[in-house]
Design a binder for these strands. Structure first.
Lengths: 125, 125
DNA sequence: TAAATTACGCACTTTGAAGTAAGTGCCGAC
DNA sequence: GTCGGCACTTACTTCAAAGTGCGTAATTTA
């Protein structure tokens, strides 16, 4: 397990896929079960429809999620994970495990359900 | 390997540690060898001294890097990785491996040495 | 004596993802 | 007939991380 010696290592590619305030949570939710747009909106309190639609489109373009439109009287669009998305979710879980293990030592927020906005973090992509 | 059912999963904690445009690269560089401030500056073309100093201080506070001031004629400060920092770097490498594997499929930038600024990505923390 | 190096600190500006708010087209229910 | 739900789109605003540029104090080199 080694970064490339002189330049890129793949992390940038990974970041490009999960980089986006809600992408990890979107990925997690659709990993649990296929979800409709409105359902996702309700599952992720705080996302605006604009950003949700935007990030779903990007994730679809990246092959992480599948978008299926169901014909019928009322509009119905379902989003589900692809195999690739699932592997990314696994990688994200490794990071989560690290965070979980370090949580106490880091003396961070007490992991309660946070409704209010958390600070934003920037990373290279 | 599972996120918590109702709320946080640890990913936020991890992000708080590596979230910062240069932190993964700083971590990688000091994982290779202890580095002095000025050396890091030169190794990471594009970082401003302000941001480098800032992120190093944050990483020190998070226990990822060790800061050692060497007494002597000229100022000498050395930054090195802690055990915790090393484990984080390992977790980052898992993501990198995913990115590396998906690189071609993602049809992204051809992994050349990029000097010019890349877009910034936001994530929840 | 002037210039450069080392390791920063500080004030101001830029930038762009995300937020806000409003609108769209289609359908069903009341 | 209009009110709400669904799945978005579009124009405008916000805000904090990162960038820019200058200052510093001690020392060393030209």
């Amino acid at each position: 397990m080694k970064h490339l010696d002189t330049d890129e290592c793949g992390f940038a590619t990974a970041l490009n896929a999960i980089g986006g305030k809600w992408k990890t949570e979107i990925l997690w939710e659709i990993t649990l079960a296929p979800r409709r747009f409105g359902v996702l909106r309700r599952l992720l309190p705080g996302v605006s429809e604009k950003v949700l639609a935007q990030q779903l489109r990007e994730m679809e373009a990246d092959g992480l999620v599948r978008r299926q439109v169901f014909p019928g009287a009322v509009q119905k669009v379902e989003y589900s994970v692809t195999d690739v998305g699932r592997t990314l979710n696994d990688a994200v879980c490794v990071m989560s495990a690290w965070g979980k293990a370090q949580e106490r030592r880091m003396a961070l927020r007490p992991v309660v359900v946070q409704e209010k906005p958390r600070p934003l973090i920037r990373l290279r992509a």
